[in-house]
Amino acid sequence: MANEKPKLKVAIYWGAACGGCCVSVLDVHEKLFDVVAAADLVFWPIALDFKYKDVEAMPDKHIDVTLYNGAVRNSENEHIAKLLRQKSKIMVAYGSCAHMGGIPGLANFTTKEDLFKRVYEETESTVNPDKVRPVPKYKVPEGELELPEFYNDVRALDQVVDVDYYLPGCPPQTERFVEVFMAIVTGAELPPPGSVVGANEKTLCDECERKQTENKLIKEFKRPWEIQDDGETCFLEQGVICMGPATRGGCGARCIEGNAPCRGCYGPPSTSPDPGAKMMSAIATMIDSNEEDEITTIVDQIADPAGTFYRFSLPGSIFRRKLFEKE
């Protein structure tokens, strides 16, 4: 059936990411046949041996769909992102990192300088008496070596190039990927550009099996190990911060089923201008006290609000990064 149409040309690229997204593509298992049947993979550095110049050689909009996973961390990421944009009809930000910055985005809490210092000088296992650091261009007898430039800031994909669709998740649920992919393949009507696909409009609570009540009053914030979880009560009602209400569903509530609260990898619904702010607002509202002192005590129990509410989304948030004096 699919054969009747020309096969889709698909590119998959891995920016600043852990590789999980690529694995999630591989996780399609037997569906791979459908995928392969429908698509030609024209670029996928992790799996197939293509060179950048092959891509450069392609005419513009040659690629039908590019699945870009990972954040934009360095000049190479940026270059390829722009390149693929130029060569692709549809640019998909695949996975949390491309979508909102993801875990690598947490580096925005610090600076390039501090990172380098830590990594190249301070870690316990480092021996670097000369304090040598990577430099973009390095002359060796054989000539000049070039390394991509490491940027100070991590960016989400759409902060570098225009993105047509976002397929969120860390990594995206394979089933969702297949659905989306097959939708493109079958030529179903596509949502307007800029949409999030492969995730629900409703947030996680909608599919969460745990019992929800209105009893969301928090006197004490707890870490997951501090509660006697019965597996049935809503995490929030047990004082554990769960990003579920502010995170799109579609992941199949994997974490919840593993008795862990949602961390928010699927990102906020469309009604949320900032990925963490709404949840922050909701959580603060749940604090069960009207006394200023008690409120601050309770707030202090949230050890790391920024990390909690923007675990996967710091670069994609309103503030994008932490400010430093020298900036």
């Binding site: 922050m280 607002s281 603060a284 604090i287 200023e292 409120i295 707030v299 949230i302 609000p305 509410f309």
Partner: peptide
Amino acid sequence: CLRRYHLIKKY
């Protein structure tokens, strides 16, 4: 508002 205020400040 007071509750949110303290969390925002921390953030």
